[in-house]
Design a binder for these strands. Structure first.
Lengths: 338, 338
DNA sequence: CTGAAAGCGCTAACAC
DNA sequence: GTGTTAGCGCTTTCAG
């Protein structure tokens, strides 16, 4: 009968079977060198036979180390974070870590409680794309008090004595805006993101690029949005401006895609009359009504880097100085700015 | 100094401080009724004071229960699975479970080793959208032998004595095909998915709908693809057929979006000359060059249902009979089949 | 090279 | 109501 439930093999069982101590078996399992060659192979054989799998809960308790890493993102549906998650897992898995992914729904309080749960589960480290309010450091202080290493992703918190990995948002803003200027645009509007470091940085880069080109920076050319729907509405407002913008730089690809829709609906030609650029290089960008020019953020690289840094600070006993890594953006020109 | 690392409060510490036994504190923490009102409030106060957080590793070892659930999907970047993950988390979190999400990269061997890791971590249950070869049940037998409840998602395995939750794929195929027939199409081609139950079911539904309408089912009108790129190539082949199809039913939205691109590139009008429909209602479907008609699979509902069923079978001591839940598809007509 | 002792932090089961 | 006795399955430390 395939229906019998086997009660899980333990070190003890193997030790008994072979007339050796639990310790010896444990050492073999962990690959310690100080075990006789013959004993080792006998143990190994039995392990294979019984298909022994160490109990990680017990192991974690005894070793005070879980080999679990918590990753907290504001939205898994957003492909940017899904890609980061992929990069993180791909880096950590081979090193023996499991990754527990949590979704904060862009809510600081939810994030806070997720962090507590992960700490209660004794994760060895934390990777956080935080939804905390920009000035609130309380959560980070709590983590630091526990002595658990963590790395911040995507969103930066100046006061949070931790390492950070993210895109170079000001560079993104400059790159996008300069590209539009080079294409001959002079009335460049911006759909800005929420007031977190990515949005703020991209806005600053946009303003800097305009200033450097001697173009006016007008407040009314900047409206805020987060996704395709709000981007659509934002673009409709921008289209009503006098003079009408000849370019729109969207905070991210969804807002830019929403803008695309609004512009086409208004019967305005892209890229002839208005050019559009986004950020993120989401997978469907070139399937849109007009393939969307965008800035690639190398999300996978962000995940990889952050995971690397975390592992290093888990490894070193003493707390290492916080590092900041900014990933360079890459321009992906397509039809929408031709 | 905010830099001091506090060594984590334990039950023992609270017990000592209050001159009660560890057990009493443990009972208060878990909300057991049999504790004196005054003792309870003293304990509670101290817990708050010290911000005590139970150590879940220790708790799990002692209680033989981790309150962790493993979720294995073939691709987190695919929004269908990301949504499922969301539905699963949203259901399980409030019940006190944490979800460990794993990516099998559509590789059966990777999936196998992920399952082993999760079992080693003593998860209470497993949710699997499996990448196993259709006939291989070995992995599922292994799980059953361990006595860990699991629920299959999206992909069905007839022999795997487990519950299943997924879309009604045959209904999807019929719904899409009938819609095209109603719109007047007579040469309906199909971009079929890989030979897993969703692809096979949708193909069958397609064939049934054609037969029921008295239309010929021609083998050469069916080619296989999985994503936008292969869908693009598949569509190019279909466009070369004589007579040329007047409709293409894509296995999923990415293949259909790829078809859209190929058709437009060939200078053929959608929906006038060829109509296109996909499956999945991915978020960007209506931002495409031609907004794509599609079939919604209620991914979140699939996740929720599966999580519910899993929790129930974790709850019941005795193994409960395997259930199959088929979620009804919903037609979302858009421009591409107008 | 091998193993005994002690314990990780918590909970089950049962006495008091 | 409260506390005691035993572990959960493993690792650490250190003695043989």
């Amino acid at each position: 009968m395939a229906n019998a439930t086997t009660p899980a093999v333990r070190l003890k069982d193997i030790a008994r079977d072979l007339n050796v101590s639990v310790m010896t078996v444990s050492k073999v399992v962990r690959g310690c060198a100080d075990v006789g060659a013959e004993t080792r192979s006998r143990v190994l054989a039995r392990i294979k036979e019984l298909n022994y799998q160490p109990n990680w809960v017990a192991r974690s308790l005894a070793a005070r180390r879980t080999f679990m890493i918590g990753l907290i993102v504001p939205d898994l549906m957003h492909s940017f974070f899904a890609e980061i998650a992929k990069g993180v897992s791909a880096t950590l898995r081979p090193l023996g870590y499991d990754v527990v992914i949590c979704n904060s729904e862009e809510d600081g309080a939810v994030e806070s409680s997720e962090v507590d749960r992960l700490l209660a589960r004794q994760v060895d480290g934390l990777l956080i794309a935080s939804a905390q309010a920009p000035a609130s450091l309380e959560l980070f202080e709590r983590i630091e008090a526990r002595g658990v290493p963590y790395v911040l992703l995507d969103r930066r918190f100046a006061g949070a004595n931790a390492s950070y990995v993210g895109a170079d948002d000001e560079a993104i803003g400059r790159l996008a805006t300069r590209h539009l200027i080079e294409r001959g645009c002079r009335q460049i509007a911006h759909i800005a993101g929420p007031p977190l470091t990515p949005g703020v940085g991209r806005l600053k880069g946009y303003q800097d690029a305009l200033a450097e080109a001697g173009l006016a920076v007008s407040d009314c050319s900047v409206v805020q949005a987060t996704d395709d729907e709000s981007g659509y509405l934002a673009a409709r407002r921008l289209l009503g401006l006098e003079p009408r913008p000849d370019a729109i730089f969207g905070y991210n690809d969804p807002t830019a895609a929403g803008a695309l829709k609004a512009i086409l609906e208004a019967g305005i030609a892209i890229p002839q009359e208005i050019k559009v650029i986004g950020v993120g290089n989401v997978h469907y960008s070139d399937l849109l009504r007009v393939p969307l020019s965008t800035i690639d953020q190398s999300s996978t690289a962000i995940g990889r880097q952050a995971a690397d840094m975390l592992v290093k600070s888990i490894g070193s006993k003493r707390k290492r100085p916080a590092t900041t890594v900014l990933i360079d953006p890459i321009l992906i020109p397509r039809e929408s700015t031709r």
